[in-house]
Design a protein around this nucleic acid. Structure first.
Lengths: 329, 329
DNA sequence: TTGAAAGCGCTAACAT
DNA sequence: ATGTTAGCGCTTTCAA
């Protein structure tokens, strides 16, 4: 693979001139430009990013941290990030941390090492303290997950309000016994969604009963099945369930079905996230949609701004309740 | 961020010695090593990959090309790739081409540019000619998708045999009218799976009827729904369906359900891929499992070998038929 | 065992 | 408008 020097020699100019042609910068006579372009073609030359990046001390690589690539929730967000990144001549490095602190370290080091210019983190299990330390010296944006009162800029939705809307929808349909399948409340979003659930119940003077609130350790399907199994054993069976993730909701759907009950006639179900599979279920799932693509775009724009040295403000985006068969069969 | 020179000064040694300590190479007296290590800690020094990579003319980045991140089929493969990559001090750059030729170009250029050391491609829609050209000068491995008689090493399963096993399973259950929901036969795997389907039918003297073979343009759920709708309108309704992807099969499941028919009593269904959601459906889906994690590991090992300059051979891995409720309710 | 020096490929400041 | 020069941070000869 030819280098800039060889192109320069072939074109009979200096390396600096070749560089100027490559970067369309300042003054190059059209005659010289032609010579250089010809030499580039001739030698099949491609500039080395390695040299360029070292010189400019940037990598034009953005790190995107997700807990696991198997979670479909992140798909659209990533598309958004990617679109904005590529438009700004950045590439993204998708990193599944699998909630593994060692992995985190590898990726943090990439930033310190100049192998990446910044981070968008969507991992709620990430080491907060290390992230905060890193954020003092390097551009970092939180997406979807964030820290209350933290100093790292974030983009998110109003989880409390979104949960409130979901539960209010169930109430409006006449449900009075509404269960909550929540995840681990060490996560901020889980706490906020419970608050929204409770706010809706209180507003309509409905009881908040402990037996109707179930916490799962993880968001996988099986945990939804298990949660629903328990809820069906409660003395006064709930007539509706709000699950804080679609995968949990789909698990609940399955378990209700297995028990010979009908959704939504016996039990209505609402999920959260509007993952692709949420309209492949039978019945299709009512769910809360986060503007994922937009969230990704926003996060990427914020990060790129940060890299440029600008100050950026956190942003809260709107959500949307998508009503489908699992509540309005 | 400190550089190697500053560490050297602080430790009272040369940059060369610091480099030796960093790379655990050749001879450094333990006394000097201690001094250097102390200085590194003191300055919070992290070596710049940019400098190192330029010098070594490698990036230790592996490109992984997939058609779209939203396809759950790739999840486990990627995990396998990632595991092997990290163990060998490589990072992976996950690239969704969205079957967009411009994207392909960006990624091809990264390799030419030395921003990546090699490519694992899982994109069946990729530009074959350009890929072949690139493969002459750079390490490339095909994973799952490959080219018959091509020169690029690949890892895959025997699609024909796998389809044969799936259909034979349906036949053994007593089905005589077996439909095929296939994807676009421009893809090699689609042609091979049809061949397997036909081989099984022939072996048991069952008719291969055109009306029972439906081709979809894409693999999404909706296309499965549509395909099944058509198959249900055929005069002699099939009693079993083999779909070449789980998403298509799940679509078929849904449509059968909507028409008040029962799976598997009225129609048995087999999918392909064993995606996570294939056991969240109702009934759970019988499907062909590819050893995805292993496939990813294998591909990564092959690529790394290639980068080292070794010759590598293509590999065909075993598949497995996972029997669930959609055929054995 | 260690240091000096060269150079990976590129760009930017300065000079002409 | 173009060339010269220096240097980004690192590793690797070669010499001591």
């Amino acid at each position: 693979m030819a280098n800039i020097q060889q192109v320069a020699e072939k074109a009979g100019v200096s390396a600096a001139t070749v560089s100027r042609v490559l970067n369309n910068v300042s003054s190059v006579s059209s005659k010289t430009r032609l010579k250089v372009e010809h030499a580039i073609k001739e030698l099949n030359y491609e500039p080395s990013m390695l040299g360029r990046n070292l010189r400019n001390s940037e990598s034009r690589l953005l790190l995107v941290l997700i807990p696991s690539i198997s979670n479909p929730f992140y798909t659209e967000i990533i598309k958004g990030i990617e679109t904005i990144a590529i438009a700004n001549h950045y590439n993204i490095l998708l990193c599944a941390t699998d909630s593994n602190a060692e992995r985190d370290n590898i990726y943090f080091n990439m930033v310190k090492n100049k192998l990446a210019d910044g981070i968008i983190s969507m991992d709620p299990t990430i080491n907060r303290q290390k992230l905060n330390e890193l954020a003092e010296k390097h551009p970092i944006i939180l997406c979807s997950e964030y820290e209350e009162g933290g100093s790292i800029p974030y983009v998110t939705i109003d989880h409390k309000l979104a949960a409130y809307h979901a539960v209010k929808h169930l109430i409006k349909l006449g449900n009075k016994k509404i269960a909550l399948i929540n995840s681990d409340e060490t996560y901020l979003y889980a706490r906020q969604r419970r608050e929204g659930y409770e706010r809706a119940l209180q507003e309509f003077n409905l009881p908040i009963r402990k037996e109707w609130i179930y916490h799962t350790e993880h968001l996988e399907f099986e945990h939804g099945v298990h949660a629903m199994r328990r809820l069906l054993q409660v003395n006064e069976r709930p007539t509706a369930v709000f699950a804080v993730s679609d995968t949990l909701a789909i698990g609940a759907l399955k378990e209700i079905n297995v028990n010979g009950l009908h959704v939504p006639n016996d039990i209505a179900v609402v999920g959260f996230d509007k993952i692709t599979f949420s309209n492949m279920t039978n019945p299709t799932l009512t769910t809360v949609a986060q503007p994922m693509y937009k969230m990704g775009c926003t996060a990427a724009n914020m990060l790129i701004n940060r890299i440029k040295g600008n100050q950026v403000e956190s942003i809260v985006l709107d959500h949307e309740l998508v009503i489908r068969e699992s509540t309005m069969g």
